[in-house]
């Protein structure tokens, strides 16, 4: 049994929020640089240059990459041999997020009630938290500030069990094409196949966290990722939908066993400002 105090968690969360919103991960930077190098449409290329300038300036001047500093999505992997001391883990996460967003000059974008009052909570809390309990005595925290423009373009569908891959490819393409410039392409597209409706959507979001340049360990699925990426880029939507050959930087797929009657597919759309930062306590 290892003890971790809530104050340690709070401080780490605050740090992760600030770093995630200001410093773009290296794999995403590399993906954007590759896109700029390969882009054929002149206006699309100009936009990619501006996007590359953006991550350089954000880090140098400590200005958030995007004014939409997102819903703070926190993935928690809690080792089953960890004991959290000094208070509630959940409260510590929210307090850490609130402290980070306030001291880091980030935007508060969360409203307390989704339907009625829609009053801003003032410090971007509460976070959206996903817990996994895993073997071991470590606590892994992953912070993913998720922008509204791309999150709102995410979709779910269920297909006939033996529909095969073709309608899934078309569903992903249609989702991207109909989103146009709203989700800020070039995108990372997370696809979750299997489980149940909510599980497929969760997988899709987790798939996004694999970032740019990773490959499924399942060979057939890795091929499907490559095929989807090629087809999405063949749409011609391009960076910010001005027309071009770089609409997505990556398609990442995660799968899970499912019911005999079902083929659930979730699609999570991630903008080019694919912010993610993790730490292990």
């Amino acid at each position: 049994m290892r003890e971790i105090h809530v104050d340690t968690i709070k401080a780490k969360l605050s740090e992760l929020c600030i770093e995630a919103t200001h410093v773009l991960p290296d794999d995403v930077r590399d993906g954007l640089r590759r896109a700029e190098a390969t882009e054929k449409a002149p206006l699309a290329k100009q936009i990619l240059v501006e996007i590359i300038d953006n991550f350089d300036i954000a880090q140098r001047e400590m200005i958030p990459l995007c004014q939409d500093t997102g819903t703070t999505v926190v993935f928690v992997e809690l080792g089953q041999d960890v004991h959290i001391s000094g208070g509630s883990l959940e409260e510590a996460i929210h307090e850490g997020v609130g402290a980070g967003y306030t001291s880091g000059y980030m935007r508060a974008s969360i409203v307390a009630h989704p339907l009625t009052s829609r009053v801003n909570t003032g410090n971007n809390t509460p976070a959206v938290i996903h817990y996994d309990v895993v073997p071991g005595d470590e606590l892994r925290l992953k912070v993913m500030p998720k922008g509204g423009g791309c999150e709102n373009m995410s979709r779910y569908a269920n297909f006939l069990p033996r529909a095969g891959k073709e309608p899934i490819i078309e569903f992903v393409m249609r989702t991207v094409e109909e989103s146009g410039g709203n989700p800020c392409p070039p995108l990372i597209i997370g696809v979750g196949i299997g489980g149940t409706s909510e599980y497929a959507m969760g997988l899709a979001k987790k798939a996004v966290t694999r970032g740019v340049g990773s490959k499924s360990e399942d060979e057939e699925i890795a091929e499907l990722e490559a095929e989807m990426l090629e087809k999405v880029n063949a749409l011609g939507v391009g960076p910010q939908a001005v027309g071009g050959i770089n609409t997505a930087l990556a398609v990442n797929i995660l799968t899970y066993p499912t019911h005999i009657t079902a083929l659930p597919v979730g699609v999570n759309i991630q903008c080019h400002s694919a912010r993610l930062k993790e730490a292990v306590l």
């Binding site: 501006e50 996007i51 300038d53 953006n54 954000a58 995007c66 939409d68 922008g147 410039g181």
Partner: peptide
């Protein structure tokens, strides 16, 4: 350009 708030 969306997502380029620091540059802008």
């Amino acid at each position: 350009v969306g997502g380029a708030g620091a540059m802008l």
